[in-house]
Design a protein around this nucleic acid. Structure first.
Lengths: 193, 193
DNA sequence: CGGACCATGTAAGCGGTTACATGATTCT
DNA sequence: AGAATCATGTAACCGCTTACATGGTCCG
């Protein structure tokens, strides 16, 4: 149920179409939250019906564009969500599940799984670190829109919280990579003659 | 779709009832994979219908017990899964999403969110570390059943892979705790007058 | 002129959650 | 006597994935 909060969070930076959101869910914010078009458009419609966002239709040659913005009711539920404790879901981790049973795989398959793990987190690490530099260098248009009309102290708060979130993700990526590298050495050690 | 593989993985240690599995999904293996009763029983039935597991009914005073064991076909699909690359799903991380937008929360709510994060991962860390000591001290009956009839080298492989998986999880917990502790300091710093 | 991009969706299905249902046995 | 444990499920719902559908515009 966090999708709608992710949507409002994004929309607090300024009005956007479903398409804009979709693209951002594949890049910037997408590295914290992702959803496909097929989920975004209906959810925005539902939120509109519930009065959490309002849309302004603009006639565009390529079709009707609907710019969404959060309503005050929408901002209210977002703030309420921010004040509410998260409920953490239980663990379900295919990569670690597999690793726990590597004795059932060939050493080569086990190593390949870890190499994939490394490749995956190196990729994510790069994207998350990219967000950090975008924050520092002010090359993110969403962030710039968000910082406009804020005083210096509030700007700093916003920037530091974003940094904080992405730093955590970078650290996680580093930990996953280190773990998988250790695993590669372990597999070699356990399977040498 | 990993549930069935988690089930077969568990059953490779020896025959078990749905209830046995359910309990283990709340303790030992449950720290890598979890599922509720309402998912386990139907899934076992489905797998039985597909010939991946077979059940032996035992008449018990408290009701009929059904002991499941993997069939050779079941072991085959499990091995095939072990050899197949995982498809990683895209990111959806409520805790980091929230952290990225902490400027919308009161400093106290933000701090509480991080304290909850710490409490959650301290709890998990304890359970994962507990699995490590159970592996080292041989106090896990599932693991002991798994090690029976294996030669020394294979026993070592099994034990080391389990250690490896849980070590990764403990490291992850440490990273999450450290991140959240840093966040607590950051919030204080950003909100002092 | 064809392919990438802009723009908005529908439909089927699945994995997972939450709540409910039932009944016996062992423990305190 | 009541609570916890053993034991096996059903039913409704929901968030998400995958695949499909449509049509216009910009760029090389």
């Amino acid at each position: 149920m966090s999708l709608r909060y992710a949507l409002i969070a994004l929309l607090t930076a300024g009005p956007m179409t479903g398409y804009d959101i979709s693209r951002r869910f594949q890049s910037s914010v997408g590295h914290v939250w992702h959803a496909p078009d097929s989920q975004i458009y209906p959810e925005l419609r539902k939120m509109e019906a519930e009065g959490l966002v309002e849309a302004q239709s603009v006639d565009d040659p390529r079709g009707e564009k609907r710019y969404y913005r959060p309503t005050s009711a929408g901002l209210e539920v977002f703030r309420a969500w921010m004040e509410t404790p998260l409920k953490y879901t239980l663990d379900r981790d295919p990569a670690h599940l597999k690793a726990a049973y590597f004795e059932w795989a060939s050493p080569e398959a086990a190593k390949q799984a870890l190499r994939d793990h490394i490749a995956r987190y190196e990729d994510l690490r790069e994207q998350w670190a990219g967000q950090l530099t975008a924050i520092d260098e002010g090359t993110s248009d969403v962030l710039l829109a968000r910082l406009a009309d804020k005083d210096e102290r509030e700007q700093r708060r916003i920037r530091e919280y974003k940094r904080f979130a992405y730093e955590g993700l970078v650290a996680r990526a580093d930990a996953e990579i280190e773990w998988a590298r250790y695993g590669l050495r372990l597999i070699d050690e356990l399977n040498q003659d």
